[in-house]
């Protein structure tokens, strides 16, 4: 028991509540950094943060009118998120992507891929998926699905816990 405790890795958990591009980028940079720190990393996606995980393409689903409306109004995937500041009706994200490319910073889709490659656990909150009418088929592969208890299970042993 003592031996297994000693081998247990430090943990970092991040709650991504926001669906803003800049905040999602920050969350994924920290997650990738923590993975390089040899932490066990979990990002828990809830509310607008779930939009980061949506597939780019339109997925046919069987939904009610309200859920469909939510689906149309929310950004479909990491490429379509807006900025928390200076969004300028979509011009802001274009400008920041241009600047990021200039500085060799990874794009959000690249950061997500890198996180998955590094074994970062991506957890979608099932309760808010129901609220926003998002179904598993609409989200990218390789996710786990859980609720607050699973998040707290990871966070209680976490050295770094962030709400973004």
């Amino acid at each position: 028991m003592v031996e297994t405790m000693a081998e247990t890795k430090d943990k970092t958990t991040i709650v991504l509540f926001s669906g803003d591009l800049d905040k999602a980028i920050a969350a994924f940079i920290i997650a990738n950094g923590a993975a390089a720190y040899d932490h066990e990393v979990t990002i828990f996606f809830t509310f607008w943060g779930l939009n980061t995980l949506r597939k780019d393409e339109l997925v046919k689903t069987n939904k009610g009118i309200l859920e469909k409306a939510f689906g149309w109004m929310m950004p479909r995937g990491a490429k379509r998120l807006g900025l928390s500041k200076m969004n300028f009706a979509g011009m802001g994200p274009k400008m920041i992507k241009h600047v990021m490319k200039k500085h060799n910073a990874l794009t959000l889709p690249q950061l997500i891929e890198l996180a998955q490659e590094q074994g970062v656990k991506l957890v979608a909150c099932t309760m808010t998926m129901d609220l926003l009418g998002l179904q598993q088929e609409e989200l990218i592969d390789g996710l786990e699905y859980a609720g607050v208890a699973a998040y707290l299970g990871d966070a209680s042993n976490g050295k770094v816990n962030l709400f973004i």
């Binding site: 940079i29 990738n32 950094g33 993975a35 390089a36 720190y37 040899d38 060799n104 910073a105 990874l106």
Partner: peptide, 13 residues
């Protein structure tokens, strides 16, 4: 060289 945060640490790890 030329890579931005967090890549140097990720590559090093």
């Amino acid at each position: 060289k030329g890579m931005a945060c967090p890549m140097p640490i990720v590559k090093a790890k």
